[in-house]
């Protein structure tokens, strides 16, 4: 017997707080945070590399924690503070991690880079990385097909040193 397809779920009002700004959207409930950012808010700095939680390109900070934005629905992130790569520079001044990516040439094509940057900031916030091997392990959720790992590790080391100094 033919199974009837359920009707389309109605759009839902969703309010997100992104980079300090409140954004009101009408979204299908199955819209991922990543697609809400990229397709509905045109914040395309956050990248899609797999849509399955396998690459880290979509990493954003939610209340200071790094998450894969493709693995969460936009409507689950209401009442949270979401930070994307677009929200890191302050008053035209790059975040030190952004600047460190440039200075260490820690990217080539740049597509994994926004995710790597958010991930580095999240990693520093976590405060778990102590050794080089910790850094490498804890950055392994962010794939860089251009293979910029050696330079990315340097960025993380510098960021950890900066946070220790504080």
């Amino acid at each position: 017997m033919e199974k009837e397809n359920p009707p389309l779920p109605p759009l839902q009002p969703v309010t997100l707080r992104i980079n300090g700004k409140e954004q009101r959207l009408e979204l299908a409930p199955w819209t991922s945070l990543l697609d809400a950012l990229r397709e509905h808010l045109h914040l395309t700095g956050t990248k899609k590399g797999c849509d399955h939680g396998q690459c880290g390109a979509c990493t954003v900070l939610v209340d200071g924690k790094r998450i894969n934005s493709c693995l969460t629905l936009a409507m689950m992130q209401e009442d949270k503070e979401i930070t994307t790569v677009e929200g890191l520079a302050k008053d035209g001044e790059l975040h030190p991690v952004q600047q460190a990516f440039i200075d260490n040439d820690a990217f080539q094509c740049g597509y994994c880079t926004p995710g790597q940057i958010c991930s580095v900031i999240g990693l520093v916030n976590e405060g778990k990385a102590k050794t080089m091997d910790d850094i490498r392990d804890l950055m392994s959720g962010n794939v860089c097909r251009c293979g910029a790992y050696v330079n990315i590790v340097k960025v993380v080391q510098e960021a950890l040193e900066r946070s220790d100094a504080r």
């Binding site: 395309t44 677009e86 790059l94 600047q99 040439d105 880079t113």
Partner: peptide, 21 residues
């Protein structure tokens, strides 16, 4: 030399094919 397109890449301003409105 640092990449001349470095700033665009670390700020998310660099636009790739699926990102043009």
């Amino acid at each position: 030399r640092n990449r001349v397109d470095g700033k665009a890449k670390v700020t998310g301003e660099a636009k790739y094919a699926a990102e043009f409105e």
